[in-house]
């Protein structure tokens, strides 16, 4: 490892963090605007033109809010929990390829942070760590609603992780590699959604459950749990939970785009490599819109239905998909 390589990594990591933070801020704006349109409202329109400065205003407001710690809370874990929640959200983005090789001031650069040969497993591993933040937030608040929210999310995330991991196997088998970069390169001519429609649907649903998005947002169901695991949180600590959620929405959209929707490929990318990130951006926008649309359309599932759906429908279907894909690859000779 040379110093210049280290420098390039550092620069890429900083750019990635800036992109994700901006993505987080504007994902909230996007969601509020889109939901407002669906509900025939106008949405945020006061701060700046078309309300574009609304995320900054929200951020400033949250910074100046009082940081409250309940008297009987476990102070160490109460402070650590939002941090533990937000770090995996950033880490997951390290393996996402945002584009191919691009010319950059006379040299070629790769538009990804790391191409590791176990990237898909890395996504599952880091994603599975995110649950600690939520569970610990629920427990350390010393509040029964928080605890119930934390327990629910632990059960939910473990259950849907299985389907999520198994849905990954389809694209891995077809591409013959666990590296996300190789999986995207294998989709140069045909997107994997064509070969793997079932895995796409399973992954999409399981991803929503994994990041606690509606209709799987039971851990924070306000009617039953007055907010769930973040009931006792305020100020920037509260904002960190939402930062984690929206960054994961963006990161999961990017992963779905990379796994099933051809990643950065699109017409004309071979000639103009800088079009790659643009296509990636468009695909992410569409997928994030789908998440918002789902939230505006579907009611929240009941808890037992949610678990039954995960274990009795998604999990067997994911297993079936692995089996069918493996048989098809053996019969058709790859």
């Amino acid at each position: 490892m040379t110093a210049s390589m280290f420098g390039i990594w550092a620069i890429k990591a900083i750019i990635l963090i800036i992109i994700l933070l901006t993505g987080f801020a504007y994902a909230t704006y996007y969601e509020r605007k889109a939901i407002a349109r669906i509900q025939v409202r106008i949405g945020p329109n006061r701060a700046g033109p078309w309300g574009l400065l609304q995320p900054m205003a929200d951020g400033l407001k949250l910074i100046f809010k009082e940081e409250f710690i309940p008297a009987k809370a476990d102070k160490v874990l109460f402070t650590l929990a939002p941090i533990i929640t937000v770090i995996p959200a950033f880490l997951i983005a390290a393996v996402i390829p945002w584009g191919g090789e691009v010319p950059f001031f006379g040299r070629t650069a790769h538009l990804y942070l790391a191409d590791i040969n176990v990237a898909t497993l890395y996504i599952v591993a880091v994603g599975s760590l995110a649950v600690y933040g939520i569970v610990l937030a629920g427990w350390s608040s010393n509040n029964k609603y928080s605890l119930l929210g934390g327990l629910r999310s632990a059960a939910q995330m473990i259950s849907y992780e299985l389907a999520l991991g198994l849905a990954l196997v389809g694209p891995i088998l077809i591409a013959g590699s666990m590296s996300l970069v190789k999986i995207v390169e294998a989709q140069k001519s045909v997107w994997f959604i064509v070969y793997q429609p079932l895995a796409f649907v399973i992954f999409l649903i399981a991803a929503f459950a994994e990041i606690n998005r509606s209709p799987f947002d039971l851990p924070e169901a306000e009617q039953e749990l007055t907010g769930g695991y973040h009931t006792e949180y305020s100020g920037m600590r509260f904002a960190l939970f939402f930062m984690a959620e929206y960054i994961k929405v963006v990161a999961m959209s990017a992963i779905i785009a990379a796994l099933f929707l051809g990643g950065y490929y699109g017409p004309g990318v071979a000639a103009h490599p800088w079009l790659g990130p643009v296509y990636m951006f468009i695909k992410i926008l569409v997928l994030v819109f789908f998440a918002i649309w789902t939230r505006a359309t579907l009611p929240r599932l009941r808890y037992d239905r949610l678990m039954a759906f995960g274990w009795k429908v998604l999990f067997p279907l994911a297993l079936l998909n692995v089996f069918l894909t493996a048989v098809a690859i053996v019969v058709l000779g790859g």
């Binding site: 599952v124 591993a125 569970v135 632990a154 059960a155 473990i158 991991g165």
Partner: peptide, 22 residues
Amino acid sequence: ALAQVTVYAGAIMVLFLFAVMI
């Protein structure tokens, strides 16, 4: 390494925590 994180840190220990909390 990543199997270790997924299986032990990600699944088994979450169940431990779950049991302890219940």
